[in-house]
Amino acid sequence: MTQAFKGVVFDLDGTLTDTEAQANHAAMAVLADMGVEGDMALFESLSGIHDIERRAILHRALAAQVDPDDFLLAWRARIDQQRANGVPTKPGAAALLQTLKDKGYLLALATSSYRTMALEKLAKAGLEGFFDVIVPVDDVQNPKPAPDPYLLAADRLGLKPVECVAFEDSETGAESAFTAGLFTVQIPDIHPASGKWANIVAPDLTEGAKAAGLI
């Protein structure tokens, strides 16, 4: 790469933390406890979708089988139990963040989680302290796939979108970053990448950073 980037903006779930699949399996277990045969495809379809919309989708999908609010409370409790001893990270996540920090890049997080939840996951994953800016879903009027989260992240870093690289796993997140004008590296997690919303599709964080010329 010949372009000189100054900032790097990361998604959280499925990109830095290995939380998407963990949460989906927890959901299936909770439904089984409630006597309902769950549909994994439903939960996998929520990848990259912000928390507010997730709740609405699940209310519509589950209302005929269980009380959606009871399910959501039980799901939250199951996830909290799983994460009591830490949140799993994607291979190379902490090392890459440290390397980028050492190289002088400004780092931001653009997540579809609420701020309190994002901060909790970062702390339990051992990834707190790396980011100059955090943009949770609370801070934007139009969440991913709209470009707003990445536009705001770049603005808060004091950079133009074209001066930043974005790391995303989902199509929803990649669309948000790509349409905002960031150089987008997509690392598929649950679903394969179409490549439509990515400058680079990579197998992992380290390879993506190398391909983007960051390390």
Rank of each mutant, 00 (worst) to 15 (best):
T2W: 01
T2N: 09
F10H: 01
L12M: 15
Q22Y: 14
A27Q: 09
V30A: 09
E37G: 07
G38M: 02
D39M: 06
E53L: 12
R55S: 15
A56D: 11
L58A: 04
H59D: 12
A63P: 01
D67G: 14
P68V: 04
D69S: 12
D69L: 13
D70L: 12
F71R: 02
W75D: 09
R76P: 02
D80I: 07
Q81L: 10
Q81A: 14
Q81W: 06
G86F: 15
V87L: 07
T89G: 04
K90L: 11
G92Q: 02
A93M: 08
Q98L: 15
Q98P: 03
L100V: 06
K101D: 07
K103V: 04
K103Y: 02
A110I: 05
S113Y: 10
L119C: 13
L119G: 03
K121C: 08
L122M: 02
L122C: 01
A123M: 09
A123L: 12
E128Q: 14
F130D: 11
I134D: 01
P136V: 09
D138T: 10
V140P: 01
Q141T: 12
L152I: 08
A153G: 04
R156A: 03
L157R: 07
L159T: 07
P161H: 10
F167Q: 02
D169A: 14
S170T: 13
E171I: 05
E171L: 10
G173A: 06
A177W: 00
G181M: 10
V185A: 00
I187T: 02
P188T: 12
P192N: 12
A193Q: 04
S194A: 13
K196C: 13
A198P: 04
V201C: 06
P203Y: 10
T206S: 13
T206V: 14
E207A: 14
E207I: 06
G208K: 07
K210H: 13
G213P: 02
L214P: 07
